[in-house]
């Protein structure tokens, strides 16, 4: 564990806590894409299948349970909790996110590190996470203005993988044979997709007004 990875995990944890805070306290999911949340639930479900078979550390297992629990409860809230569901913007959240799942699965079957069931699904979760934010970014474009909590959520979610990139650079130089091209490229693509969001987000900070 290094400071970059810890900062990345804490940033990721903060993003799900901000979203849960927004949904649970003000009972609103305005501006949040249910489709992105569904994709993230699939990402964690397919990435953490090894939670029962390989124990890394208490921290690792604990965080996996937190991410699994939070992603599925956010989907449940947005789908079935009547007060929250009422604030869900169904008409605007129309990105065909299921069209992202199949290409990621095919790509994982073609490009992976080991051809085993767990490893292919793990690789699938990497590819899917790289594009999972697309429905949210499209929804952002359509709803123009978003509240601060949603803006913070997206900022933290984009930032965590950026910190992971620093972690991979650090590990590459400090650990022999630490080479994971698939993880690195997927993580880079994922972070680059946030580029224009980060641009407008920092403009907001400079301009001191809402995220336009």
């Amino acid at each position: 564990m290094n400071i970059f990875r810890l900062a990345g995990d804490m940033t990721h944890l903060a993003s799900v806590l901000v979203l849960l805070l927004k949904i649970h306290t003000i009972k609103s999911c305005a501006g949040v894409s249910l489709r992105t949340q569904e994709l993230y639930a699939i990402v964690f479900a397919t990435r953490y299948l090894d939670i029962f078979t390989s124990f890394v550390s208490v921290y690792n297992t604990f965080m996996k349970l937190v991410f699994l629990g939070s992603s599925f409860s956010i989907v449940w809230y947005m789908r079935y909790h009547k007060a929250v569901h009422r604030t869900y913007d169904r008409e605007q959240d129309t990105f065909r996110h299921w069209f992202l799942v199949l290409p990621c699965l095919v790509l994982a079957l073609l490009i992976h590190e080991k051809f085993t069931f767990l490893e292919v699904l793990w690789t699938f979760s990497l590819y899917l996470e790289a594009v999972a934010i697309l429905p949210q970014l499209v929804l952002l474009q359509r709803t123009r203005n978003i509240d601060n909590l949603t803006g913070q959520y997206i900022f933290l979610l984009g930032g965590y993988r950026g910190l992971y990139i620093l972690n991979w650079i650090y590990r590459y130089f400090t650990e022999p044979h630490f080479v994971h091209w698939i993880t690195w490229i997927a993580g880079l693509v994922q972070t680059l997709l946030y580029a224009d969001f980060f641009y407008y987000y920092f403009l907001r900070f400079i301009g001191g007004r809402g995220v336009e």
Partner: peptide
């Protein structure tokens, strides 16, 4: 490819 040890990252 390096032999990927069990994934120790989240």
């Amino acid at each position: 490819w390096s032999s990927s040890q069990s994934h120790d990252e989240l």
